[in-house]
Write a protein that binds this DNA or RNA. Structure first.
Lengths: 212, 212
DNA sequence: GAGTTAAATGGACTTGAGTCCGTTTTTCTG
DNA sequence: CAGAAAAACGGACTCAAGTCCATTTAACTC
């Protein structure tokens, strides 16, 4: 399961020995993208525009980023790492307190919802592009970090007798994460007008429901 | 809620008084599309190819169908109507037998899963295009028929005391239907290798779980 | 059945994604 | 500090989606 994560990042992190021009251009591109995104919104910027702004050929741009989603993922990289560390710390604390697994899940959902909301525009692009292009649209295990965490907590909950033994945890994991998937999340927020809190709370409520 | 449905169909059904050439071309287009789709798969056929095969200009094609999804929706029209009638009949029968609402839901999910599987390729295009283009990706109330039905059954279940009173039924409806959404469904089937039965069964199990 | 008008047509055009490949730059080796 | 090999570059090119509008055609009127 870890391997998913590694595959996902492998294409995106700069290689060990990068040529000087490559480094320079990578930075030009990221800076140009950041600035254009800030100025006009992620969705309204084309790859060609980024190339022009970065004073770089289209081929160069695509050599490094197969699509806008990959570029956005790298832009998010730092935030993503911090977020994951915080979640890990949170979960460790809750584990130390011997909190019920379902309560840990509830906390986790709340934080992920907040994170997703905060970075919606970039996350949406990442999702749209899809790590595996064939699966553009929905990719429930999306960031495998989320998937692994929820799957782990659900297994814990089952072992601890907090939820029914017969539940299909693999599917349940994906289902619980679906509303936190950028397109679904955006739909809930923008089309339905739900607050971040309502979305987080719903998942918490649902998960508590599993425990009867 | 009905109005969603009406809006959805309004653009797609031929207008009351259609000119003869329009009718002829509409039929040429549908026939050409059907044949190309059968021959090479829905996903591998472009709009331009359909126009050529139908011996019709691109403008004509787009005048009638804003995108491939709309074309696919019309191709599915008959099947969709039959499916809806069957579901209505099924639900009426179950209502007559005074079956628990959760049992009715379980049946419904099973049938919808089968239908979705059967028409996956076309449904996927419909979904991709999105009725509202902005919402390409996921549109949980997708076919509002499904949404209305599930929402109604859940309300019934709540009134009958089969599920917790505090559950956010609006969100729950969307969540339960998410796995039946073409991209998610395809992901489960093709990437995860789940059987149609497993998907249907999971939803049934989940819904039963709601009833403790 | 000629004239009028509104609808419908077809294909050139625009736009953006993504690829390809001849040229340039870096880095390594002697 | 050559000279060669590998990596990176850039922009022209392809492909498909979707738009636009000058021209054609059906339908209605007298």
């Amino acid at each position: 399961m870890i391997s998913d994560n590694e595959i996902e990042w492998a294409n995106i992190l700069p290689p060990a020995h990068e040529r000087r021009d490559a480094t320079r251009n990578r930075e030009l591109i990221l800076a140009a993208a950041r600035s254009l995104f800030a100025e006009r919104g992620v969705a309204n910027v084309t790859m060609a525009e980024i190339a022009v702004a970065a004073q770089v050929g289209k081929g160069t741009l695509y050599r490094r980023f197969a699509n806008k989603g990959e570029l956005c993922l790298l832009l998010l990289d730092e935030n993503l790492r911090v977020h994951e560390q915080e979640m890990l710390a949170l979960l460790q604390r809750l584990a130390g307190e011997n909190a019920p697994y379902l309560a840990r899940l509830e906390h986790f959902f709340g934080h992920v919802a907040a994170f997703t909301d905060h970075h919606m525009a970039l996350l949406f692009e990442v999702q749209q592009a899809g790590i595996a292009p064939a699966m553009a649209g929905i990719d429930p295990p999306y960031f495998s970090f989320q998937h692994m965490t929820v799957a782990g907590l659900l297994r814990g909950a089952r072992s601890a007798g907090e939820i029914d033994h017969s539940l299909d945890l693999e599917m349940l994991t994906g289902l619980l994460l679906a509303p936190l998937t950028p397109p679904y999340f955006r739909y809930l927020r923008e089309r339905r007008g739900y607050s971040v809190e309502r979305i987080g709370a719903f998942l918490g409520q649902l998960v508590r429901q599993m425990g009867q």
